[in-house]
Amino acid sequence: MNNIYLPNSAIIKEVIDENEQIKTFVTVFRDEMFNRSFTYEPGQFMMVSIPGLGEAPISISSTPTRPGALHLSVRKAGSLTNAMHQLQAGDYLGLRGPYGRPFPLDIMGKDLLFVAGGIGLAPLCSVINYCLDQSGSHGKKIILYGSRRPSDIAFQSDITAWQKHSNVTCLLTVDQEEPGWSGSVGLVTSLLHNIDLNCDKSAALVCGPPVMIPPVLQQLKKNGFTDENIWTTMERYMKCGVGMCGHCHMEGEMVCVDGPVFNKAELNSLKLET
């Protein structure tokens, strides 16, 4: 019988230091056949474990359009993620998944607005690169990314690539300036004021720290986005990933299977204040 709790062993091929708090682990399953057949969709997550330290849900930051290696971007937060930050290329992780409801594929061809803060860019990286890799996708993509300080800006190599892309506008902002920073200073909401998008034909994808979400959603509403066109991905404590353990229960929904991706209309119907 298939045992959903048994992790698959994966080897870390590379560790990318995104900033002081975030590292991206480029992982490959040890079983090569499994690795080649493994696939997922943008917005899904993995349960990641180190034997002896336990498991945590981590969103996938790579895209299935670039198969072979799975990217997991991890912020130092608790005991497991702190231990992960000690790992190096050649070390092992236990992975099971992918889990969760992904971002809907039918929005990928639209004009898309991405609003992210900090580690929140990780799941959106997956969608952004997925869209850019689709040959038929010519929709406009606007990426707004807020970081605390310029030295905290993660996913630099992706950002560099996006800034060179003809269909993409990628704007960065920081909360606190540092010497050498000539870009925008202020909350990511400030970048939302001058967005040139036809809101009826586009969707907004939002992910960031809990404090960032409410003001961004308010501003998007002012910009003219309907609740059905505003998508976000929720973060919750999770133990199983398959809708059994109860930890991520949210007003009758299990974030691990009914989410983590929700649109704002769905969150409203759950009477969640956003």
Binding site: S49, P51, G52, L53, G54, K239, C240, C245, G246, H247
Partner: peptide, 25 residues
């Protein structure tokens, strides 16, 4: 009430168990 948590228990430096325990919301 079927909520549970999962934790690891080390038996030695290089072995251990992953354990499921009842939890309460």
């Amino acid at each position: 009430c079927t909520c549970f948590t999962i934790n690891d228990r080390k038996i030695s430096t290089d072995s251990g168990e992953r354990i499921r325990t009842w939890d309460a919301c």
